[in-house]
Structures are given as C-alpha cells and as structure tokens.
C-alpha cells in the first residue's frame, strides 16, 4: 500500500512538472499553431536563474527560495517574450519556419548553457524541509513533490482565471477557436501571441526551479528531457486544450512511475500509450476532432 501511495504522489509531482511545461506548449500551439521547441530552454534558463539566486544569496532560507521561484518565472517569461518578438513574429503565419526557428534556438541555447555552466549536472540545495519526507499512509514522500503539485495546481487555477476573466484571456480563448475571426473583429491578435509566450515561459521557468528540486540538480539538458514528455502530454491531452494537458500530464506521469517501478519500462509505456491514443482518438483526449 505504502509503495502505491509513494508511486502515486511521486507520479503526481512529476505530472505537475509535465503540466508546467505542457500548459505553455498547448496554449502557444492552440493560439498560434507553433510547436515551440525552445520551450525546454525557457525551463532550463529559469532553473539556472533560480540556482544562481540560491547560490549567491544562500540556499536554505524560504525567502530566498521564494525569490528563486519568482526570478525563475520572470526569466522564463522574459526569454519567451523576446523569442516571440524577435524571432517567431517575423515569420507570421509561416508555421513550419516558426518551428524551425525554435529548433535553432533550442540547439543554440543549450550549447550556450553548456558553455556557461558546463555540461555536467550541478547539484542543488534548498530549504531543509524540501530534503526531508512526510508520511502519507505509511509512505515517506519527499516534500518537494508536494511543492511541485501545489505550484502546478496554482498555475492551473491562475491560467484558468486569467483566461476566463480578463480581456486578454477572452482574446486568447477566441483566438484558439478562430484566429482569423478575432482579427476580423479589429483585434491585433499578435499582442496575445507575445502574452501566451510570456505566460508559457513563466510557467516553464517556474517549472525549471521546481524540477531542479525534484531531480536534485540543474543541467543544460534538464529542459530538453522534460520537453519530450511534455510534447507527448500535449498530444495525448489534445493540442490546444489546457484541461487536456492537465489530465494527460497526470495520466502520463503516474503511469510512467508505476511502469518504471514494476517493470522498469516507464518511458516505453508512455510511447505505447501515445500510440494507443492516436489509434483510438487521433485528436487526443480532449482535443477538438478536426
């Protein structure tokens, strides 16, 4: 029983990280039709920014850790907004070229991170509580799992509220449905593009700081590793669907944990799940059937 609880909560924690990456990917794709390969780099840069904050100001205080989270999110958001403004925007409506530009950016930035911080993982410290465990139904759960889950839930709620109650949220929801009609109502939808990039980048940057706690290290490849699973999550959840991303993130991560523990084949099971979903529902769990 305690093993199952441990696997379940650890899976939820991993799912939380997947969601933090996948939410941005899904929003960006939904609104702009761009598959953003540079999203992993937003996460990695956020993680390194958070790590630098902790390294310089002291890693074990909660205040500093909170600051690291904020800095990670802010750096992710700024990097993402710049990516949209300087690179993606120039290729308006040319989706393949937009994807290619993000591919180039991903390659270049990972190399730059390696040059700056070295290619080996840097082990990370944080508040002592995160390093200890809490008993849930007899299972010792590492506390950083709870933090990741809590943060992901907050981000999900935050994005949902933003989408529902702000004018930009309205524009984004409408744009995901029918971008051309939004412009035909006199709205410059490109402002919304920059905004979804920034929001997605913030979630990814936050995810970076949390992921480095979850895995215990930062490395230039942290983002790329999570990105591939986040891609799978977005496809399974249905491209453009935020709820779909949340559901699929949990499903994929929990399944992955269980399969890893019992058969040691977590990653393969995830790919099989993807194949299965595509065979049964090519548009994903909650995707609009096109």
């Amino acid at each position: 029983m305690s093993t199952i609880v441990l696997l379940l909560i650890t899976g939820l924690g991993l799912g939380a990280l997947y969601f933090l990456v996948a939410s941005g990917l899904s929003l960006i794709y939904g609104l702009m039709g761009v598959l953003n390969f540079a999203h992993g780099s937003f996460l990695t840069l956020g993680a390194f920014a958070g790590w630098e904050v902790a390294r310089r100001l002291g890693a074990d205080s909660w205040g500093i850790f909170g600051l690291a989270l904020v800095v990670g999110a802010a750096v992710g958001a700024a990097f993402a907004a710049l990516t949209e403004l300087l690179l993606v925007r120039r290729l308006y409506e040319r989706h393949i070229e937009q994807v290619l530009v993000t591919v180039g950016l991903a390659l270049a930035t990972v190399a730059l991170f390696e040059g700056t911080w070295g290619s080996d993982p840097e082990f990370i410290e944080g508040p002592a509580w995160l390093r200890s465990t809490t008993d849930v139904a007899g299972a010792p759960i590492p506390n950083d799992r709870f933090l990741a889950i809590g943060a992901a839930v907050l981000v999900l709620v935050g994005i949902v509220l933003f989408l529902r109650y702000t004018r930009f949220g309205l524009i984004i929801r409408a744009g995901v449905e029918n971008r051309a009609m939004v412009t035909a109502l006199g709205i410059d939808v490109r402002k919304a593009f920059t905004l979804v990039f920034a929001v997605g980048g913030a979630a990814a940057g936050l995810g970076g700081v949390l992921a480095s706690q979850y895995f215990g290290y930062v490395s230039p490849h942290l983002g790329a590793h999570l990105l591939i699973f986040a891609f799978i999550v977005t496809v399974i959840g249905g491209l453009g669907s935020l709820t779909g991303a949340a559901v699929a993130a949990v499903l994929v991560a929990v399944l992955q944990q269980f399969a890893n523990y019992y058969w040691g084949v977590g990653d393969l099971v995830v790919v099989l799940l993807l194949a299965l979903v595509l065979l049964v529902r090519p548009s994903g769990l909650l995707g609009r059937s096109a």
């Binding site: 690179l87 120039r90 290729l91 290619l100 530009v101 180039g104 390659l107 270049a108 190399a111 730059l112």
Partner: peptide, 16 residues
C-alpha cells in the same frame, strides 16, 4: 567555443 551555438545561430539566420 560551442560549435552547436554557432550552427544553431546560423540556422536561425538562414530561416529568417
């Protein structure tokens, strides 16, 4: 000193 950085940047420039 990072070949992939230069190649990645070159690639972006070509696409743009």
């Amino acid at each position: 000193s990072e070949p992939l950085f230069i190649l990645g940047t070159l690639f972006i420039l070509v696409v743009l």
